[in-house]
Computed example of a mutant assay.
Amino acid sequence: MAHYHQKLERNRELTVPEIKQIAGRAGRYGSKFPVGEVTCLDAEDLPLLHSSLKSPSPIIERAGLFPTFDLLSVYSRLHGTDFLHPILERFLDKAKLSPDYFIADCEDMLKVAAIVDELPLALHDKYVFCQSPVDVRDDISTQGLTQFAENYAKKGTVRLKEIFTPGTLRVPTTHNQLQELESVHKVLELYVWLSYRFDDSFPDRELAASQKSICSMLIEEYLERSGWQQQGQRRVLRTPRKLRREYDALQLRGYFREIDARSK
Protein backbone atom coordinates (compact mmCIF):
# COMPACT_ATOMS: atom_id res chain seq x y z
CA MET A 1 0.00 0.00 0.00
CA ALA A 2 1.87 3.02 -1.29
CA HIS A 3 1.56 6.78 -1.25
CA TYR A 4 3.11 9.25 -3.69
CA HIS A 5 5.47 11.50 -1.75
CA GLN A 6 5.77 14.91 -3.43
CA LYS A 7 9.11 15.84 -1.89
CA LEU A 8 10.68 12.45 -2.67
CA GLU A 9 8.92 12.39 -6.06
CA ARG A 10 8.27 8.67 -5.77
CA ASN A 11 5.93 6.19 -4.12
CA ARG A 12 6.67 4.97 -0.62
CA GLU A 13 4.96 2.43 1.59
CA LEU A 14 2.46 3.72 4.14
CA THR A 15 3.20 3.08 7.79
CA VAL A 16 0.66 1.56 10.19
CA PRO A 17 -0.06 4.95 11.89
CA GLU A 18 -0.59 6.56 8.47
CA ILE A 19 -2.99 3.81 7.40
CA LYS A 20 -4.92 4.27 10.64
CA GLN A 21 -5.02 8.03 10.21
CA ILE A 22 -6.36 7.78 6.65
CA ALA A 23 -8.91 5.14 7.62
CA GLY A 24 -9.98 7.28 10.56
CA ARG A 25 -11.20 9.95 8.17
CA ALA A 26 -14.07 7.72 7.04
CA GLY A 27 -17.32 9.06 8.43
CA ARG A 28 -17.83 12.37 10.19
CA TYR A 29 -18.76 12.66 13.85
CA GLY A 30 -22.01 14.52 14.48
CA SER A 31 -23.19 14.24 10.86
CA LYS A 32 -25.77 11.92 9.33
CA PHE A 33 -22.82 9.75 8.27
CA PRO A 34 -21.04 9.16 11.60
CA VAL A 35 -19.73 5.74 10.55
CA GLY A 36 -17.65 5.30 7.43
CA GLU A 37 -16.01 2.49 5.53
CA VAL A 38 -12.51 2.18 4.14
CA THR A 39 -11.14 -0.01 1.38
CA CYS A 40 -8.21 -0.24 -1.04
CA LEU A 41 -7.84 0.37 -4.73
CA ASP A 42 -6.07 -2.99 -5.08
CA ALA A 43 -7.60 -6.11 -3.54
CA GLU A 44 -4.17 -7.49 -2.67
CA ASP A 45 -3.71 -4.62 -0.19
CA LEU A 46 -6.79 -5.53 1.86
CA PRO A 47 -4.98 -7.98 4.20
CA LEU A 48 -2.47 -5.26 5.04
CA LEU A 49 -5.31 -2.82 5.70
CA HIS A 50 -7.06 -5.29 8.01
CA SER A 51 -3.90 -6.16 9.92
CA SER A 52 -2.92 -2.50 10.26
CA LEU A 53 -6.29 -1.53 11.73
CA LYS A 54 -6.03 -4.38 14.24
CA SER A 55 -2.43 -3.58 15.19
CA PRO A 56 -1.76 -1.58 18.36
CA SER A 57 -0.67 1.96 17.73
CA PRO A 58 3.05 2.49 18.35
CA ILE A 59 4.03 4.51 21.38
CA ILE A 60 4.87 8.09 20.45
CA GLU A 61 8.39 8.70 21.70
CA ARG A 62 8.81 12.31 20.55
CA ALA A 63 6.42 15.16 19.82
CA GLY A 64 6.79 17.86 17.20
CA LEU A 65 6.47 21.51 18.18
CA PHE A 66 5.64 24.42 15.92
CA PRO A 67 6.60 28.04 16.67
CA THR A 68 3.52 29.98 17.74
CA PHE A 69 2.83 33.58 16.82
CA ASP A 70 3.34 34.71 20.42
CA LEU A 71 6.85 33.25 20.44
CA LEU A 72 7.76 34.79 17.10
CA SER A 73 6.26 38.12 18.15
CA VAL A 74 8.49 38.25 21.23
CA TYR A 75 11.47 37.26 19.09
CA SER A 76 10.56 40.02 16.64
CA ARG A 77 10.54 42.69 19.34
CA LEU A 78 13.84 41.47 20.76
CA HIS A 79 15.54 41.73 17.37
CA GLY A 80 13.76 44.88 16.21
CA THR A 81 12.38 43.56 12.93
CA ASP A 82 9.01 42.50 11.54
CA PHE A 83 10.44 40.49 8.64
CA LEU A 84 9.10 37.03 9.30
CA HIS A 85 11.56 34.95 7.28
CA PRO A 86 14.73 35.98 9.19
CA ILE A 87 12.85 35.82 12.50
CA LEU A 88 11.63 32.30 11.81
CA GLU A 89 14.97 31.19 10.41
CA ARG A 90 16.87 32.50 13.43
CA PHE A 91 14.33 31.05 15.84
CA LEU A 92 14.61 27.60 14.28
CA ASP A 93 18.39 27.80 14.39
CA LYS A 94 18.55 28.85 18.05
CA ALA A 95 15.68 26.82 19.52
CA LYS A 96 16.78 24.18 22.01
CA LEU A 97 14.46 21.36 23.01
CA SER A 98 14.58 18.40 25.33
CA PRO A 99 15.04 14.95 23.73
CA ASP A 100 11.27 14.37 23.97
CA TYR A 101 10.51 17.06 21.37
CA PHE A 102 11.59 18.23 17.95
CA ILE A 103 10.83 21.26 15.78
CA ALA A 104 8.26 20.46 13.11
CA ASP A 105 9.13 20.89 9.44
CA CYS A 106 8.88 24.61 8.65
CA GLU A 107 10.24 24.49 5.10
CA ASP A 108 6.94 25.48 3.47
CA MET A 109 6.38 28.21 6.04
CA LEU A 110 9.79 29.70 5.26
CA LYS A 111 8.97 29.78 1.55
CA VAL A 112 5.71 31.63 2.16
CA ALA A 113 7.43 33.97 4.63
CA ALA A 114 9.86 34.99 1.90
CA ILE A 115 6.89 35.94 -0.30
CA VAL A 116 4.88 37.92 2.26
CA ASP A 117 7.96 39.72 3.58
CA GLU A 118 7.95 41.64 0.29
CA LEU A 119 4.59 43.17 1.20
CA PRO A 120 3.59 45.88 3.70
CA LEU A 121 1.81 43.52 6.08
CA ALA A 122 1.68 43.31 9.85
CA LEU A 123 3.60 40.44 11.41
CA HIS A 124 0.42 38.66 12.48
CA ASP A 125 -1.01 38.86 8.95
CA LYS A 126 2.20 37.39 7.58
CA TYR A 127 2.00 34.58 10.09
CA VAL A 128 -1.59 33.77 9.08
CA PHE A 129 -0.65 33.58 5.40
CA CYS A 130 2.22 31.27 6.34
CA GLN A 131 -0.25 28.99 8.13
CA SER A 132 -2.50 28.74 5.09
CA PRO A 133 -2.94 25.45 3.16
CA VAL A 134 -1.01 26.65 0.12
CA ASP A 135 0.85 24.03 -1.92
CA VAL A 136 4.21 25.71 -2.47
CA ARG A 137 5.17 22.98 -4.96
CA ASP A 138 2.25 24.00 -7.16
CA ASP A 139 2.92 27.13 -9.22
CA ILE A 140 -0.75 28.06 -9.64
CA SER A 141 -1.46 27.60 -5.94
CA THR A 142 1.57 29.72 -5.03
CA GLN A 143 0.54 32.41 -7.52
CA GLY A 144 -2.92 32.42 -5.96
CA LEU A 145 -1.49 32.99 -2.49
CA THR A 146 0.79 35.74 -3.78
CA GLN A 147 -2.10 37.52 -5.51
CA PHE A 148 -4.33 37.23 -2.45
CA ALA A 149 -1.61 38.62 -0.19
CA GLU A 150 -0.78 41.48 -2.57
CA ASN A 151 -4.42 42.51 -2.94
CA TYR A 152 -4.95 42.27 0.81
CA ALA A 153 -1.90 44.46 1.45
CA LYS A 154 -2.95 47.06 -1.16
CA LYS A 155 -6.72 47.21 -0.75
CA GLY A 156 -7.63 45.41 2.45
CA THR A 157 -10.33 43.54 0.52
CA VAL A 158 -9.78 40.60 -1.81
CA ARG A 159 -12.49 39.79 -4.34
CA LEU A 160 -12.35 36.36 -5.89
CA LYS A 161 -12.98 37.70 -9.40
CA GLU A 162 -9.66 39.55 -9.26
CA ILE A 163 -7.87 36.25 -9.72
CA PHE A 164 -10.56 33.84 -10.87
CA THR A 165 -13.17 34.26 -13.61
CA PRO A 166 -16.49 32.52 -12.89
CA GLY A 167 -17.88 30.42 -15.73
CA THR A 168 -14.53 29.28 -17.12
CA LEU A 169 -14.41 25.80 -15.55
CA ARG A 170 -14.72 22.84 -17.89
CA VAL A 171 -14.43 19.07 -17.66
CA PRO A 172 -10.76 18.27 -18.40
CA THR A 173 -9.96 16.34 -21.55
CA THR A 174 -6.25 15.73 -20.88
CA HIS A 175 -4.11 14.91 -17.87
CA ASN A 176 -2.51 18.36 -18.00
CA GLN A 177 -5.93 19.99 -17.88
CA LEU A 178 -6.80 17.76 -14.93
CA GLN A 179 -3.71 18.95 -13.06
CA GLU A 180 -4.59 22.55 -13.82
CA LEU A 181 -8.12 22.05 -12.51
CA GLU A 182 -6.72 20.46 -9.35
CA SER A 183 -4.56 23.56 -8.91
CA VAL A 184 -7.59 25.82 -9.33
CA HIS A 185 -9.33 23.75 -6.65
CA LYS A 186 -6.40 24.43 -4.31
CA VAL A 187 -6.66 28.18 -4.96
CA LEU A 188 -10.39 28.18 -4.23
CA GLU A 189 -9.80 26.14 -1.08
CA LEU A 190 -7.15 28.65 -0.05
CA TYR A 191 -9.59 31.54 -0.51
CA VAL A 192 -12.19 29.81 1.66
CA TRP A 193 -9.58 29.15 4.36
CA LEU A 194 -8.44 32.79 4.35
CA SER A 195 -12.04 33.99 4.48
CA TYR A 196 -12.41 32.39 7.91
CA ARG A 197 -9.28 34.18 9.18
CA PHE A 198 -9.91 37.54 7.48
CA ASP A 199 -13.69 37.50 7.48
CA ASP A 200 -14.34 41.03 6.21
CA SER A 201 -11.42 41.09 3.79
CA PHE A 202 -12.34 37.93 1.85
CA PRO A 203 -16.09 38.43 1.33
CA ASP A 204 -16.68 35.91 -1.49
CA ARG A 205 -16.59 32.75 0.62
CA GLU A 206 -19.88 31.40 -0.72
CA LEU A 207 -18.82 31.96 -4.32
CA ALA A 208 -15.44 30.30 -3.74
CA ALA A 209 -16.98 27.35 -1.90
CA SER A 210 -19.58 26.75 -4.61
CA GLN A 211 -17.01 26.83 -7.39
CA LYS A 212 -14.72 24.56 -5.39
CA SER A 213 -17.58 22.06 -5.32
CA ILE A 214 -17.98 22.41 -9.08
CA CYS A 215 -14.24 21.76 -9.45
CA SER A 216 -14.63 18.54 -7.50
CA MET A 217 -17.52 17.44 -9.71
CA LEU A 218 -15.59 18.19 -12.90
CA ILE A 219 -12.57 16.26 -11.63
CA GLU A 220 -14.78 13.34 -10.71
CA GLU A 221 -16.45 13.47 -14.12
CA TYR A 222 -13.06 13.31 -15.85
CA LEU A 223 -11.95 10.35 -13.72
CA GLU A 224 -15.17 8.48 -14.41
CA ARG A 225 -14.90 9.11 -18.13
CA SER A 226 -11.26 8.09 -18.24
CA GLY A 227 -11.32 5.15 -15.84
CA TRP A 228 -8.19 4.08 -13.97
CA GLN A 229 -4.87 3.09 -15.47
CA GLN A 230 -3.31 0.49 -13.19
CA GLN A 231 -0.30 -1.75 -13.88
CA GLY A 232 -0.62 -1.33 -17.62
CA GLN A 233 -4.23 -2.53 -17.74
CA ARG A 234 -7.18 -0.22 -18.09
CA ARG A 235 -9.90 -0.64 -15.51
CA VAL A 236 -13.33 0.25 -16.82
CA LEU A 237 -15.51 1.92 -14.22
CA ARG A 238 -19.27 2.06 -14.28
CA THR A 239 -20.88 4.18 -16.98
CA PRO A 240 -19.89 7.80 -16.25
CA ARG A 241 -22.72 9.54 -14.48
CA LYS A 242 -23.59 13.03 -15.57
CA LEU A 243 -22.71 15.98 -13.43
CA ARG A 244 -25.11 16.74 -10.64
CA ARG A 245 -28.39 18.03 -12.13
CA GLU A 246 -26.97 17.05 -15.53
CA TYR A 247 -25.07 20.28 -16.00
CA ASP A 248 -23.92 20.79 -19.55
CA ALA A 249 -21.63 23.64 -20.56
CA LEU A 250 -24.46 26.14 -21.01
CA GLN A 251 -26.06 25.22 -17.69
CA LEU A 252 -22.72 25.56 -15.93
CA ARG A 253 -22.26 29.05 -17.32
CA GLY A 254 -25.76 29.96 -16.18
CA TYR A 255 -25.04 28.53 -12.75
CA PHE A 256 -21.91 30.64 -12.38
CA ARG A 257 -23.73 33.78 -13.51
CA GLU A 258 -26.36 33.14 -10.84
CA ILE A 259 -23.76 32.62 -8.11
CA ASP A 260 -21.83 35.66 -9.34
CA ALA A 261 -24.94 37.82 -9.12
CA ARG A 262 -25.55 36.72 -5.53
CA SER A 263 -22.04 37.77 -4.51
CA LYS A 264 -22.47 41.36 -5.68
Results as ranks from 00 to 15, higher is better:
residue 9 E to M: 13
residue 133 P to N: 04
residue 218 L to I: 06
residue 185 H to L: 10
residue 158 V to M: 00
residue 151 N to Y: 11
residue 159 R to E: 09
residue 18 E to M: 08
residue 159 R to Q: 10
residue 10 R to C: 13
residue 13 E to M: 12
residue 68 T to A: 10
residue 229 Q to C: 01
residue 219 I to T: 10
residue 116 V to G: 08
residue 70 D to H: 10
residue 239 T to Q: 12
residue 222 Y to W: 01
residue 59 I to W: 13
residue 181 L to A: 03
residue 124 H to G: 09
residue 188 L to I: 03
residue 216 S to P: 00
residue 171 V to S: 01
residue 165 T to C: 00
residue 179 Q to H: 12
residue 122 A to D: 14
residue 196 Y to S: 08
residue 65 L to C: 07
residue 216 S to E: 01
residue 165 T to Y: 09
residue 147 Q to E: 03
residue 127 Y to H: 03
residue 3 H to V: 15
residue 193 W to P: 02
residue 40 C to E: 07
residue 121 L to F: 14
residue 80 G to E: 09
residue 100 D to V: 05
residue 152 Y to D: 04
residue 17 P to I: 14
residue 231 Q to K: 06
residue 38 V to Y: 06
residue 169 L to Y: 02
residue 23 A to R: 09
residue 153 A to L: 10
residue 177 Q to V: 14
residue 223 L to P: 13
residue 249 A to L: 11
residue 94 K to N: 10
residue 161 K to R: 13
residue 262 R to N: 07
residue 180 E to S: 00
residue 192 V to I: 14
residue 215 C to D: 00
residue 140 I to N: 01
residue 128 V to K: 06
residue 115 I to K: 09
residue 32 K to Y: 13
residue 36 G to Y: 08
residue 1 M to I: 15
residue 214 I to A: 11
residue 21 Q to N: 09
residue 97 L to S: 06
residue 177 Q to W: 10
residue 28 R to K: 15
residue 113 A to K: 02
residue 164 F to M: 00
residue 200 D to G: 06
residue 128 V to A: 07
residue 190 L to A: 06
residue 187 V to A: 02
residue 257 R to V: 03
residue 95 A to G: 09
residue 3 H to G: 10
residue 127 Y to V: 04
residue 69 F to Y: 13
residue 156 G to H: 09
residue 205 R to P: 00
residue 30 G to Y: 11
residue 225 R to V: 03
residue 114 A to M: 15
residue 249 A to E: 15
residue 94 K to D: 15
residue 230 Q to I: 04
residue 68 T to D: 05
